[in-house]
Nucleic acid binder design. Sequence first.
DNA 1: TGACACTTCAAACAAGCGTTTCAAACTAGC
DNA 2: GCTAGTTTGAAACGCTTGTTTGAAGTGTCA
Lengths: 225, 225
Amino acid sequence: MSGSSRPNSSAAQAATRRALLDSGADVFAEVGFHNATTREICRRANANVAAINYHFGDKTGLYSEVLAEQSRVARERFPSTDGLTANAAPAEQLRVFIRSFLQRVLSPDLHARHGRIMAREMVEPTAALDRLVSEAIRPDAERLTAIMRRLLGPKTPAATLRLCGMSVVGQILFYCHCQPVIQRLFPDQPADAARIDELAQHITGFSLAGVQNYRTPVAPRRAQR
Amino acid sequence: MSGSSRPNSSAAQAATRRALLDSGADVFAEVGFHNATTREICRRANANVAAINYHFGDKTGLYSEVLAEQSRVARERFPSTDGLTANAAPAEQLRVFIRSFLQRVLSPDLHARHGRIMAREMVEPTAALDRLVSEAIRPDAERLTAIMRRLLGPKTPAATLRLCGMSVVGQILFYCHCQPVIQRLFPDQPADAARIDELAQHITGFSLAGVQNYRTPVAPRRAQR
DNA sequence: TGACACTTCAAACAAGCGTTTCAAACTAGC
DNA sequence: GCTAGTTTGAAACGCTTGTTTGAAGTGTCA
């Protein structure tokens, strides 16, 4: 009896918090912050409706912690520099950057929760977005810009580096933001989450060729228009 | 509407309907379908709260008509083939496709409503998405695939054409879906809607170079164009 | 003018929301 | 075993939501 009954100890206290963070991540990823109901989150966590307010103050408090945790977990699980030394070839750095980015937003290991929550946060920002940008997105953006600078040369204008970086990130996030459309357009195609490596390879090759468009013509140019 | 034999006082009736369609488009674009309230839509239209239910059945009825109209207006205002003959050079076709796409989702002429509504519809689909895909998105996707086939040759695998098409669309939609992040990352930068031509030029050049990655280097073909 | 169909209006309705309340259950320290 | 402090529970609160209601207003046509 005592084995399967819910013990009310300090362990159980932490367990309620943890269950709320987990079910909250699921529900927020599924329906977004506004459409998520505290009752549904508590139901999945086998907790009372008052649990969120007791442990996190209010619904936004839970959401902030979920967002921060998902971001942290995703970056620990799939770091941008996946065991790459700082002086690796820029093409290789770009390849690793793209693959780890795709893994963070699509990987079933994380239930693709991080990607879905981020997609909703971008289309419909909450107060938590500012912190996310400064702590997670901006470092990534600067890292990508640095890779671009090494690819295109130190004299490349900042505007060009930005445009190329956005082209890379745009290609990646497309598979995260537009999944409902992709599924309807190509229902026969395997899920994108199941072919992350294939997508990473394509985006890397496409982008490496794309940025060559901006290489300064030190040598006599080919007939490339 | 089925018995339109008697057009009595149709002016005032049509005016309320029209005002609801306009204010509905604004509100849906601003906050999304779920967060939009019928009271706010009616307030902006100077109509009674019962007006939506009277003229459109319910909230989803209004939303469906708003979505269909915005899609139609955007495509009339910025057609994919902007006065281009069918046998124009594929590179030129791609350039026009990208520019008109960017205009549809970002142009202030349409108050960027179409792009914002579409972005929300993709992240959080409603029942209206299926019709939108079959009537508007799939034709565009097939047109883009055809352009890619002309760029890369008729023997190019369908999977390759798909990947390249998604790379193009991903670059475009990034500026629509991630505007809150872009604004926070580069607050000094002019709004993307004010530099559509610049973005179109970049994406076209980047993509034309990118797809060259897939050209089969079998025969020593002449540099095309 | 008066009958008629159509449209608008203020008010109310039922349902769902986040949150609060306060008693009961529980653990820990003595 | 008793008390103090913490966590949980069922119920309810106040509010907003989409929708409905029935009367009042409006213009048309015989």
